[in-house]
Every structure is written in C-alpha cells, then in structure tokens.
Design a protein around this nucleic acid. Structure first.
Lengths: 206, 206
DNA sequence: ATATATTTGTATCGATCGATCTATAAGTCG
DNA sequence: CGACTTATAGATCGATCGATACAAATATAT
C-alpha cells in the first residue's frame, strides 16, 4: 500500500545530503534556513521544510547521522581487529586525509570542524554527536596503540595515550589544512613522516 | 594638549581586548553586536560603539592585531636564529599548547579556529589576517627544518615540507583538543612524542 | 563666555533569523 | 463519488541582525 496524501515534490534523502553539505561547509548556526530551503529540490517553501524535517535542529541531526554513516567511516579501520594495529592507524590517517581533500563535497572533516559550530552553551547539545565522534576517534587511536603493546609489537614503555593524542591531533589539524587548500599529496607525504612515530616504539629484535 | 570633546566612559584598549576574547571564543560572524556592546565597559550604546570602532569588521581587525601582537607570539621562536632549530620548534609547540590551555581566555588558538569564521566567500577578506598567520606559522616550521638540514644537523634526505606539515598539523589540532577540554599535561606529553620525528632525521655520527 | 569637538542616550532603520497560521492542491482510501 | 491524508503556496509572526539619525551632554580651545 502506497503512501497517502499529496506526494512530496523533492527527494527527502537527497535533501538530507544537500543539507549535510551545507552544514559541513558552514556549521550549524551559520547555515540559514534560507540557504537550506534554496538548495533543496531547487527551492522549497517554509512550510514544506518544516513538514518534512520538523526543525533546523532535527535536520542537522539527520545530516550528522548521514555523515557518520558514510564519510566518517574512513576511520573504521581503528576498530577492525582483523587489521594489524599499525596498518589500522595508517589506513585511518590516509583514508581520512584523502576523503577530506576530495572534490564533490566541502573540504575537511565535518566532525572536526564542528567544534566551532557551538559557540554558545545552549547549543552544546546540538553538536553533541560531533563531540562524541571526536572522542571516539581519539579512543580508536589509543586502542590501536594499546593493542600493539599488548601484542608485543610495541615496547611496553610506549605511551599509548601520548601517541594516540599525537595521531589524533595531527588528523584534526588536517581538517584546517584541507580548508586552507593544502594538497592531498603533501598531506599524504606528511603521514609517511608521522608514521615513523610508530616505528620508533617497535620492540627491537634481540 | 589633551583631547577635546566629551570624554569616553570606557577604556578603548580594554574594550579591544574584551572584543578579542569574544571573537576568539565565537568567531567573527557568531559574535553579535549585542554581545560586544554588553561586554564593553559594563555595557555601551550602539552609537558609542560605532563612534569608537567604526564597524564590527574594523573592531575585529583591531582584535586580530591585538591577538597577533600578544598571544600569537608564542611561536616567535620559529624565526629566532639564535635558537637552535630543534629547540625553536619544540618551544613553539610547548608554548603555544600551554597558552591554548591557559585559563583567563578562551581555549585554543584564535588564528587556527578562525578558519570556520568565514563560511561565505564574501567574508574571506575579513579573516585574511588569520589565514596569513596560519601560512606564516607553517613556513616557520619548514624554515626550522631547512635550517637544520643546511646546518648538517638533520639528514639531507629529510623532507622539510613533510616534517613542517606534520608539526603544523599537530599544532592546529591542539586548538580543537584544547576546546574539547584535553589536559595541558597530556598535550605536552604528546609533544615529547612528536619531537621524536626530529630525532629520527638527525644525522647519525659515524 | 562662547565656539568647537566628541561622546552619549533614545529611537529607529531595513534585512534577516527560525518558525507558524491558514487555505489550497494532490494524492490514496472506502 | 466523497472522506481522508499529506504536501503545497502565500502571508506573517516576534526576535535579532548590523547600522544610523538626531539631539542632549560634556569636555577643551579661544
């Protein structure tokens, strides 16, 4: 049985993707309802917007979910136990950097850049999923280092938290550099440099 | 000869510092005139604001200049030829990180976080000083590595650009981590980790 | 004392913000 | 067909945005 009532004139899922691109580019507060309406299905009216999405905040939440389920997966390797920890870290760094520099969508990472989207305390809850995702990625880096230590690949003297922060901070910085137009190839080369931090802590064969 | 006319009821320089804190915290567009007026001298009127500063944009420029001449100096070691290159890099990283985590002002770096303050192309010129400062800091890191290579401290095979990007990207990420409330001590420990990238490239004594 | 220069307070400007009301159009059901 | 359901279009809401006009207040300069 098909849906009753007058059919929608625009593709709702495509609209969420469009909204995601706008929020990604400008942040939550800096993206206006006018922008969103104008970019959905070639332009929709205010009541159509609210009938379809409820409010700006609800659409933002959908857009964030959409991002987390698609683009944000570039760091999934950090929780894949079938991938050696070092490869997992390197894959996450390279895939994320590559994605952040791709054309077809805004530069940088929506999760990382979302920090500045909650300038006031009353907006904190809006960007909570982004904050949680940043925390999760950080934990993922630490986890990989800890696994490597437990497996005997890395020295027991290695500081998992410090190494995790180093990898994580580098990747957060990539968002700003990607926004500034730094070439993907330059960033990729610097990942090669950064990964030497891992090799240093490898247990020396006796 | 003193200034003529009715005297100002607030300290203009203190007002610029107050404005700097607000712009630092919320970015250019997200800081409203109402906020600025309310936080200057215990509250001033609209005409007083415009008489003193001209416009929101002009005040922002003054606030940025104020930041660059004070807080931003934490990375000045990168251009100090009397400091050994490695120390210069490490000092810049540690001083900047410490400053970004200090209390008494917003967390993170105003220059780094200013990326998201220009969501629209027509605002690009407003944050141009911030963009220029980011570029300058990056060049500073590269410069130190190049000096070290020229001095024979670092291997000629070292990639100055890649290493510069690595240090720079890490430091940009610190702004986001500081905003997220990461402890200064944890960040400082990760700098110790990061600096191993330098030691790796040191010419081995034969 | 008078003229001049500057800041102040009150009121207000048009534009835009996110959001809502009412009425109409366009579908599926019985 | 008529009943029901849903999305549409146009008009508009109060709040806030950055910015201005005007006149009263307060200082210095002559």
């Amino acid at each position: 049985m098909a849906k009753m009532g007058r059919p929608r004139t625009f593709d709702r899922q495509k609209a969420v993707v469009q909204a995601m691109h706008l929020f990604w580019e400008h942040g939550y507060e800096m993206t206006s309802l006018s922008q969103l309406k104008a970019n959905i299905g070639g332009g929709i009216s205010t009541p159509s917007f609210y009938a379809a999405f409820g409010s700006k905040e609800e659409l933002f939440n959908e857009a964030v979910q959409c991002y987390l389920e698609t683009y944000a997966c570039v760091t999934d390797s950090l929780w894949d136990d079938e991938i050696p920890p070092k490869d997992a870290v390197e894959l996450a760094l390279r895939r994320s950097t590559k994605m952040q520099c791709e054309s077809g969508h805004p530069k940088g990472c929506m999760v990382s850049l979302g920090t500045m989207s909650a300038p006031t305390p009353e907006l904190t809850h809006v960007v909570e999923p982004l904050t949680a995702s940043r925390s999760r990625t950080f934990q993922g880096f630490v986890r990989c280092v800890e696994h490597a230590i437990a497996m005997g690949e890395l020295s027991k003297k290695a500081n998992a938290r410090s190494m995790g922060i180093a990898f994580n901070s580098f990747l957060l910085g990539v968002s700003i550099l990607a926004r500034d137009g730094v070439d993907a190839s330059d960033l990729d080369a610097s990942i090669t440099e950064l990964m030497k931090l891992w090799d240093i802590e490898v247990c020396q064969p006796k």
